[in-house]
Design a protein around this nucleic acid. Structure first.
Lengths: 227, 227, 227, 227
DNA sequence: CATGAATGAGAGTTCATTCAT
DNA sequence: TATGAATGAACTCTCATTCAT
């Protein structure tokens, strides 16, 4: 959920945006038209800001990121950024929540609860990997954000809430003796670490992106965690 | 040249490194002794700068790091830093190389080539984990450095050179069908990822630091990569 | 022209002023009615702007005053302010003239030309003091305006014109040897300074607001200027 | 006394400066040389900053004051101001204390306790008036500072402490039935108001600066407060 | 060598004003 | 007419680097 510091200045807008961003079930750019008589903050501009920021962080790193550069990249004036975000911090926190939420949402996409566990896990592993590769700019953003002065407890709490379903699934698999009976956190991190490292290898070109390699990489993970 | 006062931890490191790896020794000396006529007047000050920098990065992050803060923490004047390093960039690059080299050196410490492979790998896994936990400030520094504007190709190349022996060992184990016949990079990253994720769990307190848990965590890794 | 809704305090003022001073009436109307075809669409909004501005200046000072804050406090959009005033400067100048005129008008309210001079002066002293206390926001506005970049010669001239009657009365008292034969400006400022300082003491609570204290304070002034 | 936030970064320096600024008995620019081996903050630069600030406030007002303008006027770089003052606020508070202290100190200069009260008061009245006229830039600064966001309780307290002697003298005169038996605050403000208004008239040219006029103006004040 | 005051470019942020709706 | 998002110049403050001492 977006915290009380929200997105912009307009209280009404902020509250609506908060519930929507939190769920990421709707594309927020559509919710801004509800009252056409009044000029409103523009979802497209929000998109542009997000896109610009992710792109810049991928290119020049989070620490080199300036508001002026974001504005230029997004085709806006510097001041305009402050119409949408109260400060640089708010902007980064907002984009963090967006990226984090999207990432979490991607994980269980297309999950078939009736399929065998191994297939389900493999699908999720693939989901996550593909998301990492496709939205690499967001990944870079997230990894850098974790190590930045902006990473707060509020940010930390978000993660826990987002992967609730995921944790439940792991626990179920453990109960059915499909996964090893070790602390859940160990299984989760083993899985996440595997995706992360594999994606890094694929991106750097050290490992060529073939289905075989993907299967091998998942195999290393699965053989480690399966009962 | 390191002056008479230049003993302490710096000298110690070098001696230890020498017994382990010729490469490491050579590299280590290069970093701090090149251009000895001008720089490196006083090893103790160099130590103080390194300690100060690592401590500050752990506390406030790489992006909040200022030369003034380093100087204050090290008990020096700002200008003095520029006697030892030409610029902030050089300071960071130097410390990166130092931390990276120490980390690599720690990996194979106490390795017994006559012991069974699994024991040797477990020892190395533990070596690396302990190093990560003990020198956490350096770990934070390194992780942040990877994502910083200062991380260059030169920095990237260093890693490859440092883990040559490590790569060779993996390849040998593969040849003996002890490890799976998958790309070496996959095995290396699987191993590294496992150490990294486990260390994170231990530091955050999510996983209590007991020998049992360590064994479990290593088990997840080993079962994944073993043939 | 003030529309049908433009009654309220604004219309009231004008009527009151009319009974007191022709000059004030004329002036007052000039300020708010000039260029009536374009500006002054809605007297209520004008009122709201004035009230909002005075309130904000009392709370946060003239230098912290922003157009956005005025609009918010008045319940309008920022752009709307520019329908009523060409610029921030014009808004401030307009409100200055309004406050200054009201202050001057208050001075001679209820004056009885047939009463003894001392009583008449005391009444005026009290008039002024009460006005200062009651319309403290305006007083703060004026005092800050004098020292602001917006205080121009035009502003300066206004004062002189407004207190013409007052000056005449002083001169008459001097001619009758009721007041000392010293430059009129000295008498006027002595009087004004006394009111100002007394009001400050009352507001700060240093001096308790009783009739006795008021009489004492006026006594200090009167004993100084009387012949 | 200068508060704990002091003048600059060097703790030692700051503490010394604090005691000296508080008393204004020494010229602070001389106290910075005590250790010639080390480059220290420069009293002349402090002077230049003060001079520049007062001059600018007289010319363009406190609200138009920018750090860039101060630096330019003082012949320094912007950043240099922040060597001497932690922020714009500190700078203004520091200069307020300086001006206020100097003003208070001027009041009783040359006082002869054996002289008759009226002469003593007249001398002080003149002292204050001359100071106001001579250091007009400081006066403008002070008057604007009172109405600025920077005027705090700390600033307010300073005044009370500075005029202790002055208050005592008034009380003594009251006890001897030389001044009226009215609240001391009333007498003090009557006196201060008289000086203020007279100075304004002289500066504006409304009143020509002659000994006669000065005597008349003081007479208005004295006749008001004398028993 | 060591010092730390001085520098000034560049960062984040504000706000009077405009203008499409 | 009324709106409020958009603008960009100008503000305060930071910090890597230099240099006189």
């Amino acid at each position: 959920m977006v915290g009380p510091r929200g997105v912009g200045r307009c209280g009404e807008m902020r509250r609506r945006a908060a519930t929507v961003w939190g769920l990421v079930l709707a594309f927020y750019e559509h919710i801004f038209d509800y009252d056409a008589a009044v000029k409103l903050k523009d979802g497209e501009k929000l998109q542009a800001i997000a896109r610009a920021t992710f792109a810049l962080v991928e290119r020049t790193g989070l620490s080199g990121l300036t508001m002026a550069a974001i504005a230029r990249e997004a085709g806006l004036a510097t001041g305009t950024l402050y119409v949408y975000f109260k400060s640089k911090e708010e902007l980064l926190v907002g984009l963090y929540e967006r990226a984090k939420t999207e990432t979490a949402a991607s994980l269980m996409s297309g999950d078939d609860p009736s399929a065998p566990f191994r297939s389900r896990f493999q699908r999720m592993w693939n989901n996550w990997l593909q998301h990492r590769l496709k939205h690499y700019a967001q990944v870079v953003f997230l990894e850098q954000y974790y190590n930045s002065p902006w990473f707060s407890d509020a940010s930390r709490n978000l993660s826990a809430r987002l992967i609730k379903d995921w944790t439940d699934l792991i626990d179920a698999a453990k109960a059915q003796q499909i996964l090893k009976d070790v602390p859940t956190a160990l299984l989760i991190n083993s899985f996440g670490g595997s995706v992360r490292e594999t994606a890094n290898l694929l991106r750097s070109g050290t490992l060529v992106h073939t289905d075989t390699h993907l299967a091998l990489a998942f195999g290393l993970c699965w053989d480690g965690i399966k009962a």
